[in-house]
Amino acid sequence: MTATVPRAVLRLRTLVPRGISPIQSDVIDQLQECKTEGTIADLDIDTWGSSMGMSISNDRDSTDTRKLLSEFEQWEETHNCTLNPAFGRSDTKSSGGGNIEDGTYTTLPLLCLAVYNDTTVQAVYPHRTSEEVRTIYDGIAALEARKPTREQIEITSSEKPTATGTYSH
């Protein structure tokens, strides 16, 4: 059975605070290196805003962010972890006159890495388990750990290597 090489999707928040752009660039560089090395089959880079209204009509979600968040929530439930606080949820009530719509909003993280096996979400970073927070960099490390190792057997003189790497006469 051949292992499927996953694909990665990096989502970046637009209009980020000063100082975040170099971090985003560093993450992009590391993921592009993963693609070059073959640890990921493909890398998509998308942008999203700072939040998503979860109760607005579908025709106002041209980026399918709500559908994506639903997939992430299913992954979250299946893997017994939480996407909070990176994906914060809040209820908003307008005070009239403003352009803020009443409803539930999800705050989107500055960076989000989703790893897919075909169309199925395999991992979402950042997330939190009961023991630890798993960051974007943890996600990159997990991808890099998939890199095949090339062990070289060095044979000197007439010795023959054995399964344990030792030779007895």
Rank of each mutant, 00 (worst) to 15 (best):
T129V: 00
I23L: 12
N117W: 03
V133W: 13
G53H: 13
D61K: 08
G38L: 06
E131G: 01
R150Y: 08
T39G: 03
P6G: 04
R13S: 07
A163I: 12
R134V: 06
K160M: 10
I40P: 01
L83M: 14
P22Q: 00
T39N: 04
F87P: 03
D61N: 07
D42G: 11
D59G: 03
K93N: 09
E77A: 14
P161I: 10
I136F: 07
F72G: 04
A114W: 01
D26F: 10
L43W: 05
R18F: 05
K160P: 00
I45Q: 04
M52E: 12
L111H: 05
D59Y: 09
V124C: 04
R60G: 11
T106D: 01
R60H: 12
G88I: 02
G38V: 09
Q74S: 08
Y137H: 12
T2L: 13
V133F: 14
R60E: 09
P17C: 07
K67E: 11
T47E: 15
T82W: 06
G98P: 03
W75M: 07
T39L: 10
Q74R: 14
I140F: 07
I140P: 02
G38T: 02
E151G: 10
I100Q: 09
E132I: 13
L110V: 08
T47Y: 15
G139L: 06
S70C: 01
T119R: 13
G98L: 15
E159K: 12
S50E: 02
T106N: 04
R146T: 04
V27E: 05
R150K: 08
D138M: 07
R18D: 03
S55C: 00
G98C: 15
R11M: 09
D64E: 15
R134T: 10
E33T: 10
I40V: 11
I56E: 15
I23K: 08
Q152L: 13
F72S: 02
A8K: 03
Q32H: 00
A145G: 13
R89K: 14
A142G: 12
T39M: 11
T106H: 01
